[in-house]
């Protein structure tokens, strides 16, 4: 295919980034008053909203109750207006069901669920604008929302995608780069301990290249961590300055 040149000879990508560069990340915590925790994040043009409710009593069927830890309930959805083509996605969309499952696995690994027996934690994420790296943006948004809700976690969960084009590993793929059909890797990392919460790969990649792509994704995750940590610290300072140093009960 004589398509787009995804990586120029000078080493620049379609949107002007270098191979290991992330898109601009902007984040805000505590966007809703009603939810226990909420966050909004933009990674380039990918925008996601996450809300967390809980821990609370198990709603619906009692049979889901776990007696030694909390149930993590996730729901991933995409707004009708999030993609170029307007599309109504009723519940049970194959792709969202898979994404929901991945999110659940990711956060069960990170949240200290054993502290809340017989309870349930709800995580709802919605993509408002899709421009590549939807899963990663959702994980980052949900992490911020969980921190906002004051739910104990082992560590941040930072996620970032990576690809492999023209013998170069690229970090944080945009929609154009994803659509080119090369190998794609999504990594959710606990950056402090270097533990992997979730790793997923599409299409084929030669074994010899895997390590390089993994390294690029790991580095990108740590960069994401630096940005998220900054956002959390700012939020913390802002709120604790408002509260002053009076002894809250």
């Amino acid at each position: 295919m004589a398509g787009l040149e995804l990586l120029s000879d000078q080493g620049y990508r379609v949107d002007g980034r270098k191979a290991g560069e992330l898109r601009k990340i902007q984040a805000r915590m505590g966007v809703f008053a009603q939810a226990d925790g909420s966050a909004y994040i933009e990674q380039g043009n990918t925008k996601a909203l996450a809300v967390v409710y809980g821990p609370h009593e198990i709603r619906g069927s009692r049979s889901k109750t776990l007696h030694d830890r909390a149930v993590v309930n996730c729901q991933y959805s995409m707004a009708t207006f999030s993609t170029g083509e307007r599309k109504r996605r009723p519940h049970g969309d194959r792709k969202s069901t898979e994404m929901t499952l991945h999110l659940k696995q990711t956060f069960e690994a990170a949240i200290l669920t054993q502290l809340y027996p017989r309870s349930q934690i709800d995580i709802y994420v919605q993509i408002l604008q899709a421009d590549g790296g939807n899963y990663c943006t959702c994980v980052n948004a949900a992490t911020l929302a969980i921190i906002d809700a004051g739910i104990p976690m082992r560590d941040y969960v930072c996620a970032c995608s990576a690809g492999f084009i023209e013998d170069t590993p690229l970090a944080d793929l945009s929609y154009v780069e994803e659509a080119a059909g090369g190998p794609q890797l999504a990594l959710a990392l606990l950056p402090k301990s270097d533990q992997i919460a979730l790793l997923e790969m599409n299409s084929r990649l030669h074994e010899d290249h895997l390590e390089r792509v993994m390294d690029a994704a790991t580095k990108a995750c740590k960069d994401v961590y630096a940005v998220l940590d900054q956002a959390v610290k700012e939020h913390l300072q802002e709120v604790s300055a408002m509260l002053g140093d009076r002894g809250m009960a």
Binding site: I147, Y156, S193, K233, E238, S240, A241, M242, D245
Partner: peptide, 20 residues
Amino acid sequence: KRVTESGLLDSAGHLVCPGD
């Protein structure tokens, strides 16, 4: 209004984030 900009930040105590 960003509190960080308005210079309201004083000794807010020892602040930590998950994993610190």
